[in-house]
Design a protein around this nucleic acid. Sequence first.
DNA 1: TGGTTGATATACAAATTTGTATGGCCGATC
DNA 2: GATCGGCCATACAAATTTGTATATCAACCA
Lengths: 301, 301
Amino acid sequence: MADPISPIQPDWTLYRTFLAVLREGSLSGAARQLALTQPTVGRHIEALEAALQIALFSRSPSGLVPTEAALALRQYAEELDATTAALSRAATRLGEGVRGTVRISVSEMIGVEVLPPMLAQLRAQWPELVLEIMLNNRVEDLLRRDADIAVRGVRPQQDALVAQFIGTINIGLHATPDYLARHGAPQSWDELGRHGLIGFDSETPFIREVQSRIGGLRRERMALRADSDVMQLAATRAGFGVGVCQVGLARRYGLVQVMADQFNWPMDTWLAMHGDLRNHRACRVVFDALVTGLRDYANAA
Amino acid sequence: MADPISPIQPDWTLYRTFLAVLREGSLSGAARQLALTQPTVGRHIEALEAALQIALFSRSPSGLVPTEAALALRQYAEELDATTAALSRAATRLGEGVRGTVRISVSEMIGVEVLPPMLAQLRAQWPELVLEIMLNNRVEDLLRRDADIAVRGVRPQQDALVAQFIGTINIGLHATPDYLARHGAPQSWDELGRHGLIGFDSETPFIREVQSRIGGLRRERMALRADSDVMQLAATRAGFGVGVCQVGLARRYGLVQVMADQFNWPMDTWLAMHGDLRNHRACRVVFDALVTGLRDYANAA
DNA sequence: TGGTTGATATACAAATTTGTATGGCCGATC
DNA sequence: GATCGGCCATACAAATTTGTATATCAACCA
């Protein structure tokens, strides 16, 4: 039935298989993820290569190695994936009342430490609500519909987005009273160097920005390195040493701020949502609840 | 194989069928467009409704009437369509050299009157280049990848876009010398009212903006109404009466401008491209050629 | 070095999807 | 008011897609 001469617009399902193979790195892996079998996945890739008239992978016994072509096309497939997921979510929200799935993208710290009570209250009030949380695995593009609602550190520019300013969340150096009683409270960057400093493992753009303005937070000085903010807070609470965290959370857990005059990082915080979702009752309710809840949190600190 | 209890992520192909049914308004029509048969299309819709647990259409003997749910989900399907098409185009551009398909969105007038020589020259220089032209059928969103390159009347804001200012294209009232010899040249809006005025049929946002600043271009005064700019120009050139068109084109066709002091609409013009395409050789070549060509056109007027 | 693991490729059978043919329904038109 | 055209629904047959089983190869580890 397929015309062998001219390239036909490929079956959209092939794109999903293509993406799975890229993510898993092998036909077998993709087959497991898709609940298909390895031969079918292999045939899908063959079909897609034939349709696009391009080699997408070089086969190897350890898996499939994507060609440059495959890497170039990946972003499109990711977009398709995000859009289909968004469509499914939108479908669950149809009908009367506050119902269906809303996907939220937040930082690990806000997600773990701040959001849960708000989510619990939302769910208690609207039993048909389903919530998905994305702990900032890098992709959090509202325009691409990776999430419906996102907490952002900068003012969203696109006018396709609805945005509300939450407030300024302050970040500082903290330790347990216990730890400070044993080791003393550092008063300067030099003294801090002799403490068990808790910090980042790999440098993110955000960290580089902080470093450029504050210096003295070099990677070599860290006594415990972890990329997870939540892990860092846990270590600080366990009395490992001095760690960076939001002052509101520090207060909640009885941590004491040190060198407040020398290190204070104010983090402007915004809540954003895709403008198309303004009229989805469920999204609207969640958005409004998060604005209120997060403002309370930001103002309390 | 499909779990009958929990809704499964639907086969992506179902979305394509869904979109075709929305566009065609019937199962049979969609089947024709997709090169499938009416029963399969019907089954696809059934399957999608089952997967999403939503009624998408109410069946009727004259076709399918989309439910509100279907209308709400349509935009997502359109996005999928745009993205798959963009993927296919990107695939054709892979490899060495300037090759593959580039899709351009322009106004009808620029497309028909200005672009063709530039396109011809591009094609002559790069025989492997394929060009697609979209005459502004409303959707021309570069972020959604409906097109690769677009001519815009306003400065593109999104920083995901590459944009170049082309120049200012002036629009004025014109007629053939012949016509003016027979009817005289109007000197005022009142006089113009007695002429065979050529203008729009339905009001677009652009027209409303012009009207709000210039008045006197009411729909009732038109002696010939057509939404197509190209049709309007053709009528003006045929000596029907006085019409609105770009002064550069008017000059080319020997038309004479009237009431230049009272009606002159400067139209800022930009060329824009999705930033991701900056490194696609073919897109880059077309973009640069259009910048040069359109600037020549704008400056000549 | 030999066994184990996990990968792709291929042959064949099962299952699913698709197409064909038909019937019935509504509306437009002469 | 009868006919024609276009549409959807359903039954049955054909074709395609998928899964199962197996062979083969490379890498890793004891």
